[in-house]
């Protein structure tokens, strides 16, 4: 019960501050202290958002971005689980994964962009590569930390029941490290989203329409500041939905329900 109360309280506090921010915003926009191109009024932003929703543009582009990010995210998740599993199974592979992670983790995807263009071109493949690069390393780091943190009792109980190595990983190590996998997913999501938006802003339209980053970039080059804010609004909205509803709900149904965190 207290849990629900505190979440309701959180929403209340947020709504309160959002209202204050919006009011201040509007007062400043209307005060004329800034040119409209710097500080558009809320009405203009809402109109820009409305227009692009009606024309379907922003929806299409958001959808395009979301599909890309989901693809990249799933690939990374599976690859990270596979690589971490191999790493705990084999010393040689462990060294390899450790080295690769140490090299690649600190590299921002955007820094790799020129190289990625040469190797993979400027299509959706390149965007996926950047997303995978952004997600997979923090994911592996988290999963490996999770694997190391598992109480040996779980594995020994599994061995005692006659589990083979594969099933120890699949049935015990992965669920047992789920809290770590989840926090890896959170970090990965944030990084993937950032990488995607920046890549789209640099690459421009890949595919027919291009994604949300492209949308914002287009508003920028045509100096449509309200439109830019409309794009940012969509990004914030998706961020909140994913964090508060997707991840939080998943956590509620798994690790929280199981008393693991």
């Amino acid at each position: 019960m207290t849990n629900k109360d505190s979440s309701r309280n959180k929403i209340k506090t947020r709504l309160f501050w959002i209202t204050i921010i919006l009011i201040t915003w509007e007062i400043m926009a209307k005060s004329g202290a800034f040119p409209e191109a710097i500080f558009p009024s809320l009405l203009d932003i809402a109109r820009a958002l409305g227009d692009s929703v009606v024309s379907g543009e922003i929806l299409l582009q958001t959808g395009f971005s979301l599909v890309l990010i989901l693809e990249g995210f799933l690939i990374s998740l599976l690859a990270a689980i596979l690589m971490s599993s191999l790493a705990v199974s084999n010393k040689v592979f462990n060294g390899l994964v450790d080295t690769l992670t140490a090299i690649a983790h600190p590299l921002p995807g955007i820094a790799l962009l020129p190289l990625i263009i040469i190797w993979f071109g400027t299509g959706t493949l390149s965007i996926i590569v950047i997303i995978v690069h952004s997600v997979i390393w923090p994911m592996i780091l988290n999963i490996m930390t999770g694997f190391r943190a598992i109480s040996p009792v779980y594995k020994e109980a599994g061995l005692n029941f006659g589990l083979n190595h594969f099933r120890i990983i699949k049935d015990i190590m992965i669920p047992a490290s789920l809290p770590y996998v989840l926090s890896g997913m959170r970090i990965g999501w944030a990084r993937a989203w950032r990488a995607l938006i920046s890549a789209e802003m640099i690459f421009g339209a890949v595919g027919l329409k291009g994604g949300l980053g492209w949308y914002i970039f287009k508003q920028r080059v045509f100096m449509d500041t309200p439109g830019m804010f409309a794009g940012l609004f969509v990004i914030v909205l998706i961020g909140i939905i994913v964090e508060d509803y997707v991840f939080a709900a998943f956590e509620e149904r798994t690790v929280k329900k199981w008393g693991m965190i």
Binding site: L113, I117, F120, G121, T122, I202, F203, G204, A205, W214
Partner: peptide, 22 residues
């Protein structure tokens, strides 16, 4: 317009010379 890819000049040159989709 639907064929456009936005790339700075150096990246655009690399992409053209790489002979991929650009």
């Amino acid at each position: 317009d639907n064929l456009l890819v936005t790339l700075g000049h150096p990246d655009g040159m690399n992409a053209l010379l790489a002979q991929r989709e650009v």
